[in-house]
């Protein structure tokens, strides 16, 4: 097991109190695996990933839980001082764990050259000369498919397109061949045409280096293509997780149903695009029961008062919904989900 996160909680202090961005989240990641994390905007995906690396903004704080990476405890609470923690994390960041960010336009320093920004991560973790680092940077640019790499190294971010900048960010993330890459919506800010290219580069490079990936997105299409396992997040919690086929063809949580129904159908006739009605809850005051209760057409009375535990579907597939309780009434699953179930049955 490469990464094990247990009962992680994170909050942000704001003027209106604290936002419970991540609420008691646990998951694991095996070596070489690609874990997809999906959920609506604001459900805490970025906060969760940044908590792992200790990269929260000034007002953010991990309030509980443990994080074990490659056999070592790296949660903030395992260290006696901020300084000790930062020191430990700095040996992991960029060398063992690389991060790819959402917006390539804002994550590169506008006043440093591309070369300097790639070389920095190499020099942070290797005792080599600047020339050697520059040579390695050149190699990396070729690896992520940048034309004219010698020229690019000397340029500044504003001289590059969004797609190229995202390749640079990928090059930075893989520079020291990390065991894990956390990619936080790496294609969301890109043109559709560029998205596929960038995605393929990330996929190829990670396959070649046998890097594990945690891939955050709200695009289920990407997840289907890329991930081995999927975790679905809602309002700061994971509500369902399982193998990618299990989540796509045999989903159990009404929120996952909603997400799957809102994927635009390519072949289907021009159907009105489905959107889950309502809005996610305000995480300043997290709900007592199931956070999805107010938007859930299949809600049971108990959802309003008690948070559902995880129910086992298979050895690898769990979902936190009272619908899976043996005492729950049988519900009529929406038609498109029933179709999915049928495909699933044919498969297995």
């Amino acid at each position: 097991m490469l990464l094990e996160v247990n009962h992680l909680s994170t909050e942000f202090k704001t003027d209106m109190g604290s936002v419970q961005a991540v609420r008691d989240v646990s998951f694991t990641l095996n070596s070489g695996e690609v874990l997809g994390i999906v959920g609506e905007s604001g459900c805490g995906k970025s906060a969760m990933m940044r908590s792992i690396l200790g990269l929260l903004s000034e007002n953010g704080q991990v309030t509980g839980g443990s994080i074990v990476f490659d056999g070592q405890e790296i949660g903030r609470t395992a260290f006696s001082s901020e300084k000790e923690y930062t020191h430990k994390m700095n040996t992991l960041r960029g060398s063992q764990i690389g991060m790819v960010f959402q917006d390539p336009m804002t994550f590169l320093n506008p006043s440093l050259t591309i070369g300097a920004q790639i070389e920095e991560t190499i020099l942070n973790h290797n005792r080599i000369s600047r020339q050697q680092a520059a040579a390695r940077a050149l190699e990396l640019l070729k690896m992520v498919g940048i034309h004219d790499p010698e020229q690019r190294l000397k340029q500044y971010p504003f001289q590059l397109s969004g797609g190229m900048r995202q390749r640079i960010i990928i090059a930075i993330a893989i520079a020291n061949e990390p065991k894990l890459i956390i990619a936080d919506e790496p294609t969301t800010a890109l043109d559709v045409t560029v998205q596929a290219q960038v995605l393929n580069i990330l996929k190829d490079v990670c396959a070649r280096l046998k890097t594990s990936i945690i891939f955050i997105t709200h695009d289920l299409g990407i997840i289907a293509e890329l991930a081995d396992r999927v975790a679905v997040m809602y309002a700061g919690k994971i509500v369902e997780y399982g193998q990618v086929d299990e989540i796509f063809y045999h989903p159990q949580h009404p929120y996952t149903w909603g997400l799957l129904q809102s994927i635009p159908q390519v072949n289907g006739e021009n159907k009105e695009l489905y959107a889950i009605p309502g809005n996610p809850p305000d995480l300043h005051t997290p709900p007592v029961g199931d956070a999805f209760y107010p938007r859930n057409p299949y809600a049971l009375n108990i959802d309003a008062v008690l948070q559902p535990p995880f129910f086992k579907v298979t050895n690898t597939h769990y979902a936190a919904t009272w619908l899976l309780d043996p005492r729950a009434p049988k519900v009529d699953v929406p038609e498109d989900i029933r179709e999915r179930y049928a495909k699933w049955k044919k498969h297995y």
Binding site: L53, L92, R93, G94, G98, L108, N109, T121, N124, I172
Partner: peptide, 10 residues
């Protein structure tokens, strides 16, 4: 970009 710099272990 400061977050990215931190993510490199700077």
């Amino acid at each position: 970009y400061i977050v990215l710099a931190r993510s490199k272990g700077t």
